[in-house]
Design a binder for these strands. Structure first.
Lengths: 185, 185
DNA sequence: TAGCACATGTAACTCGTTACATGATTTG
DNA sequence: CAAATCATGTAACGAGTTACATGTGCTA
């Protein structure tokens, strides 16, 4: 099964959802970890149903088609738990930002600094949104590591830690370029 | 043009290379930032040549086909520099690891800890390879921010900073799970 | 009345991986 | 003599994005 299948199961294991709800949840909050558009979600749900990992019940919807509510089957739940600690293949890193940084030497210092300050600001904005999201977590709800709330909090904590490191790196790089301006006499 | 095209130009702008050399460089060292297999590289070089961004000279090769040496044209160089600070579209995050962490609550504590300690070790190993690569950089060669060596060093520094944050996050999470074992009486 | 949220699907396309294909030279 | 490296390509497939397609009910 594809990673998308497991992403959908992580949502469904907390309770039945319609395809539309799952597609929306794949943007927020799962979008921070794994994204998928509705055009990917609907066929994947059909595959999961064919494999017997989820069941679906159809009812009249507002539009021309029925709406379908999906629920994880016992088999689907077992497969999700088996996936948790199955061997994890490393994904190749892809950062267009770092690729551009490798071209720093081709442009003059002011232009490089303008770009880096801009990107630093964007990275700091992302960090701010993570921090305001952390404020939304009730401290008591994330006390117990055996809860879904704690698991969600742990991924947010990852975002906070790594994004803070990115901002820190921008500051290091910008400071290096600024220092270059003063000293090379 | 695709990001791959610019990845190839960042390599070619430092001097002419054959398709084979470029395919190898796309694994190491560019593989840390952007990967591509040779089956992607050869067609992309043909596209770049058709667009007039690179030129190619063919010579007899060891195998059944000629080998071709590519070089950036003045147009290609201008396009690469224009790309440097063009608007940068954010790429969606995809982390199967974090997706799995969201399922922490479905497995028992010991199983979760075993998985996390294993992944923590893998992350620490990556950090170690980055650190030994930093040791390979001559301090004087990366003094001047206007050099290709400094640009490469800056991307390595990114890897070090962010990977250290990841290891730190693992330690936080593992400590939280271990504390859960002692206190909830 | 225009746009958005609800609700579900298909089609065309791009990007990337894996496998297929050929063949010389060097190294263990 | 087997395997890796050099050297260049094509084909098939899977994953993901964007656009196409349809139609209701609510809100500004």
């Amino acid at each position: 099964m594809s990673t998308l299948a497991y992403a959908l199961l992580t949502l469904l294991v907390r309770g039945p959802r319609t395809g539309y709800q799952l597609a929306r949840l794949m943007r927020v909050p799962i979008g921070y970890l794994w994204t998928a558009s509705h055009s990917q979600v609907y066929p994947e749900l059909a595959r999961l149903q064919a494999a017997g990992w989820v069941s679906a019940t159809a009812g009249p919807g507002p539009g021309p088609r029925d709406n379908k509510t999906y629920a994880v089957t016992p088999l689907g739940r077992r497969e999700l738990i088996a996936w948790f600690d199955a061997p994890l293949a490393p994904r190749p890193n892809r950062s267009e930002l770092l690729l551009r940084v490798r071209c720093l030497w081709l442009v003059d210092r002011e232009r490089a600094l303008a770009f880096l300050r801009d990107q630093r600001g964007a990275a700091a904005d992302v960090l701010d949104t993570y921090e305001s999201e952390r404020a939304g977590f009730d401290a008591r709800r994330v006390e117990n590591p055996g809860t879904p709330d704690f698991a969600a909090y742990a991924t947010l904590h990852y975002g906070l830690t790594s994004q803070a490191a990115v901002v820190e790196w921008f500051d290091w790089l910008i400071a290096r370029l600024e220092a270059d301006h003063l000293s090379p006499g």
